[in-house]
């Protein structure tokens, strides 16, 4: 379990993390989601005792990381795929890390095997692709067989097969009762990997809830309706708390009414509808909604709102 209380980090006149409180529980995958520069990596470095908090505390299983008797056996972290001397081989890097905790060579071979690095383990890390660097970082994180695993942007640079592998790995680790804390700026990845989500923007926690709650909690029910008589249906459905928008010729988007009531209203007035699709806000939309004021680097060209994802249809 990871617990942050009033955790703050100030660099000069810039506040990277502004007094955050959160708890990462064991036995589930907790995603740490936020735009670039939101304070994810800084928070993770503070958990690992690499950056000193300006104020506040963060503990792992009740103890600050630096006071653990066998840190690598309790907490494994991938903080940066490049946390390796580029002129050393992957095997020797892991061997040197393992030596600090008398972790046997067999375990070094095991993590190399399980991260798929066996063929390149004796090669210099400097020649590794980003994806291989990530695998080495994950191998290093797993070296001490830790109860708590912290991964900062683990799928960055991985090929699709590697992405699936990481997804399955973290789910498996959580199913074993481990604490898994995973950061990403990719909402789509979080949607399929995390059970619980902590959303951070400009150093502040803006949401901390089960992932399903974040997706459904924000938006209202929306339904897409196609009909021959859009004007009549619009008139019929309009009411308190209900908004109807004509999107195309025969396409309406209804907010605030569930599909059953739309269908009933249409049936009673003998209006034929030929499509009725419940729309669910995607995590992407929920995330955009949550972080729209918190993004540090706005794009100059504002992209249109993310396209809604069909949940029921087809």
């Amino acid at each position: 379990m990871i617990e942050a209380r009033g955790l703050t980090k100030v660099y000069g006149d810039k506040t990277a993390v502004a007094g955050v409180n959160f708890t990462v529980d064991a036995g589930r995958v907790t995603g740490f989601l936020g735009p670039n520069g939101a304070g994810k990596s800084t928070t993770m470095r503070m958990i690992m005792g690499l950056d000193r908090p300006t104020s506040g505390t963060v503990t792992v299983n009740g103890t600050p990381f630096a006071r653990h008797a066998a840190p690598l056996r309790d907490v494994g972290a991938l903080l940066d795929a490049k946390a390796v001397h580029t002129s050393r081989s992957a095997y020797n890097h892991l061997l040197a890390m393992a030596a600090t905790h008398s972790i046997p060579k067999k375990r070094v071979h095991d993590v190399i095997e399980m991260t798929g690095l066996a063929d390149v383990a004796k090669k210099k890390v400097g020649g590794f692709s980003l994806g291989m660097g990530q695998r080495l970082g994950i191998a290093a994180a797993l070296l001490g067989d830790p109860q708590t695993v912290i991964l900062d942007e683990p799928v960055n640079g991985l090929d699709p097969e590697g992405v699936v592998w990481v997804r399955n790995l973290v789910k498996y680790l959580a199913s074993e009762g481990r604490t898994v804390f995973l950061s990403s700026h990719l909402m789509s990845e979080m949607a399929v990997t995390a059970d619980h989500l902590i959303v951070i923007g400009r150093g502040r926690i803006i949401a901390d809830a089960p992932i399903q709650e974040i997706i459904t909690g924000k938006g209202q029910i929306r339904t897409r309706v196609r009909t021959d008589q859009p004007d009549q249906l619009m008139h019929l459905l309009a009411g308190d708390g209900v908004s109807v928008e004509l999107q195309e010729n025969e396409l309406l988007e209804v907010t605030g009414l569930d599909p059953r009531r739309i269908a009933r209203a249409a049936l009673e007035s003998h209006i034929m509808i030929y499509e009725l699709t419940p729309l669910q806000a995607s995590l992407e939309e929920a995330y955009m909604e949550l972080t729209k004021d918190e993004v540090e680097y706005h794009s100059l060209i504002t992209a249109g709102a993310a396209a809604p994802v069909q949940s029921g249809g087809n």
Binding site: A70, R73, S102, D110, M114, T115, G116, D145, Y172, L173
Partner: peptide, 22 residues
């Protein structure tokens, strides 16, 4: 060998962490 095999990649992991520190 390591695509989509949920449990396999973490093979060899066990229980809680006890052992020598630095």
């Amino acid at each position: 060998a390591h695509a989509g095999t949920g449990g396999a990649p973490a093979g060899g992991m066990s229980g809680t962490s006890t052992g020598p520190g630095p």
